[in-house]
Amino acid sequence: MLAETPHAQKLGLALGGSASVTEDQKAGLIEVRVEPKFLMDVSKKLKELGFDHCVSVTAVDYPRENYMDVIWHVSSYSNEELGNKLVSLTVRISRDEPRVGSLVGVWESSLFSERETHEMFGVEFEGHPDLRPLLLPEELLGKWPLRKDFILPKRRSDLFRKGGAQP
């Protein structure tokens, strides 16, 4: 489904050669993938093009392949034409050393989302001004609960179903 549609081509040209731009036509999502070293440049260019706010920051964990994708979803309020587009800016980083530059300097709206992604995945956002824990209770700090190797304890209802626990 990934294709070099006119939208993607146009954006690819505007961003220069450092980013690969494709459009997931089924999802309606324009995907920008960059190397970590080009992240700052590409994000600044995206902002200049009119993508003025960050909707979400998140990560996706792939333990078997030993990498993580950090994704910024950005859109636009000020530019009506871009308002119905959603662009995902993806960086692939190693799971052993999950470090990536913070984009708070570019999109201030990513502040709280990056804080959340830090505590949930253990991604270090370099240059982020405030990486204090946000949502988690103390006993879960440092355990990176949204990573795939964090297994939830079995629910009691499941145990009953298998006859494994007494009421």
Binding site: S78, E80, N84, W107, E108, S109
Partner: peptide, 25 residues
């Protein structure tokens, strides 16, 4: 408000005309 990425009625009370029902129906 645009820079901080606030949403919804609060955003529109600041004069930014963005409602997902209209801008991305």
């Amino acid at each position: 408000a645009t820079e901080l990425g606030v949403v919804g009625p609060n955003l529109r009370a600041s004069g930014v005309k963005c409602d997902v029902r209209k801008c991305a129906p």
